[in-house]
Amino acid sequence: MSKTEPLEMQIRFAGSGGQGLILSARILAAALAGEGRFVAQSQAYEPTSRGGLSRSDLVISEREVDYPLVTALDVAVILDQVAVPACAGLLGRQTLTIIDAGKVTAPPEEPQTIHALPITETARALGNPRVANITALGALAELAGLIAPQTLRARMLKLVPARFRDINAEAFDAGQALAKAAEKV
């Protein structure tokens, strides 16, 4: 892939509106900034409160970047089939790709490695499918080697509403466990 900025890394969270992926990206952005890295976090969504394509991107660098939007993804987290076409042209052989095994029925073809994890199913088993975004974050932390999972987890707990802290902690841990199991395969 083309590296136009020093030590740059590009990540996308993509799915359907209401899945909470913008929050996932903001939590990751906050945790990375806490480690002294520079992030540019953007998003695109449709003018509906639920459904439709929703995505949030991170460009991570050692200084303020010139172009703040993604051009070639290092990591893609895709939680709904609707988001697959939206990643076309941004995925390559080397893109570390995590997909929701239940919701992505036709995975993208470009990436060499795709981790198909039962993210939403796991969240539902915990009692609330809406924590799928945090389950995905746990899986990402384990697989991407971007930041220490414990650092990200701690930041996440500070940013989610207090009454949902326990279930989000469980969701994060479950996501990490899914990824660990997948790595062994």
Partner: peptide, 10 residues
């Protein structure tokens, strides 16, 4: 809109 909604470390 892109810059309006962009979050950056600044």
């Amino acid at each position: 809109e892109t810059i309006g909604h962009l979050v950056e470390t600044v």
